[in-house]
């Protein structure tokens, strides 16, 4: 493994860690950013998986032995498009959530709230 690959591997790990941390936050914006970072991490990982860097994979430009592996690049390109589309949808959804709730936060789980209420006020549940 070449040195650049180790660097990239460390970067991938770091991006995943930050992305996962952000994904676990309560603010919807941070969750979106976390997803964006995780997507970047996954795309970088695909590139690292393609092996060492080489010349651009165009016939006639370089000898096949010197070329970089084009397949992971194609896959990363597809993945970029997918994460881009899903990110826009997420942004639209969190904007809608903000319009409705006026709060940029993940809502409590309905079931959790019901159980919590039962703990606080035993016996009242049936009345509701």
């Amino acid at each position: 493994m070449t040195l650049s690959n180790v660097t990239l591997a460390v970067v991938v790990g770091g991006v995943y860690a930050v992305g996962a941390y952000l994904l676990l936050q309560r603010s919807l914006m941070r969750i979106v950013f976390g997803f964006v970072l995780l997507g970047h991490g996954a795309n970088l990982l695909l590139l690292v998986a393609g092996g060492p860097a080489g010349r651009s994979p165009l016939l006639g430009e370089a000898a096949p032995a010197e070329m970089a592996d084009p397949l992971p690049q194609a896959m990363a390109l597809t993945a970029v498009v997918i994460t881009f589309g899903v990110t826009t949808f997420l942004l639209a959804l969190s904007y809608r959530s903000w319009l409705i709730h006026r709060r940029d936060e993940v809502q409590d789980d309905v079931e959790d709230r019901r159980i919590a209420r039962r703990e606080e006020h035993p016996g009242e549940e049936e009345v509701r």
């Binding site: 997803f35 995780l38 990982l45 393609g50 992971p72 997918i82």
Partner: peptide, 16 residues
């Protein structure tokens, strides 16, 4: 999407 990112990771690792 979290599981999709994991899927993408698995694909990268399989390719590697």
């Amino acid at each position: 999407i979290t599981s999709s990112i994991l899927f993408l990771t698995a694909i990268g690792l399989c390719y590697a």
